[in-house]
Amino acid sequence: MSEKEAFLKLVETIEKFLQLSRVTGAEKKQEITMDTDIYEDLGIDSLEAMDIVGEIENVFGITVEAQEMLTKKKISDIVTYIMQSNSSN
């Protein structure tokens, strides 16, 4: 999997999560780039981050160290972490 593929898959996973975790019906999307800080820019909190780690494991078919992953803030860092986990799994 290329970095770009991992990025697109990650964005899709997070967007789907943000949509699913909303009971509001409001459809406004938040744009996600490699520079996006998921906590600062998307307002994701630690509980949501735990849910997203679970989704990433499902979607990428990998097992991650949740505690370590939760320290990654930027999308680019998460992509790098996923790429590393992918090759070691």
Binding site: L18, L42, G43
Partner: peptide, 20 residues
Amino acid sequence: FDPVEHMPVAVARKTDRFAQ
């Protein structure tokens, strides 16, 4: 009622309609 008109998207996303 669109909660996003009244609060940040991240708050709207994390709250049930009653809290909104």
